[in-house]
Amino acid sequence: MDAADLAARIVARAAARGVTIAVAESLTGGLVAETLVRTPGASVVLRLGVVAYATEMKERVLHVPTQLLADRGAVDPEVAIWMARGVRQLAALDRSACTIGLGTTGVAGPGAQDGHAPGEFHIGVELETTHGLDASATSHLVRGDREAVRRAALRAALDALDAALERTDLAMHSESTS
Rank of each mutant, 00 (worst) to 15 (best):
M83P: 11
L36Y: 05
H63L: 15
A163G: 11
I100T: 00
A91V: 01
A7I: 02
G73D: 09
S96A: 11
E56Q: 15
V125D: 03
Q89H: 08
E34G: 14
R72S: 15
R143L: 09
R88P: 09
T168H: 14
H63Q: 15
A164D: 07
F121E: 02
V11T: 02
S174L: 15
L154T: 00
I10D: 12
I81T: 00
L46H: 04
E120F: 04
V51F: 10
I100A: 02
K58S: 12
S178A: 14
A152S: 15
W82P: 04
R60W: 10
V75M: 03
S26C: 11
A163I: 00
D94G: 13
K58T: 00
A54E: 12
D94C: 09
G86R: 00
I123D: 03
D145R: 08
L154A: 04
A156G: 04
S26E: 09
D76S: 09
D134A: 08
G73T: 01
D169P: 13
R88G: 04
V149S: 03
A156P: 07
H140S: 06
A24M: 09
H173L: 13
T99D: 05
T130L: 15
A70H: 15
P65C: 04
D169S: 12
H140Y: 11
V125C: 09
R167C: 11
G132K: 01
A16T: 01
G144N: 04
R155W: 10
A74E: 11
R167W: 11
Q113I: 12
A8D: 05
A157G: 13
H63Y: 14
I123Q: 02
E128M: 07
R13V: 10
T66A: 14
A4M: 08
L31H: 05
H122I: 01
V51W: 13
V11W: 10
G109I: 00
A152E: 08
M1N: 08
D159W: 05
H122S: 09
D5H: 12
S43E: 05
Q67A: 15
M57A: 13
L6T: 02
Q89R: 12
S43L: 09
A52L: 12
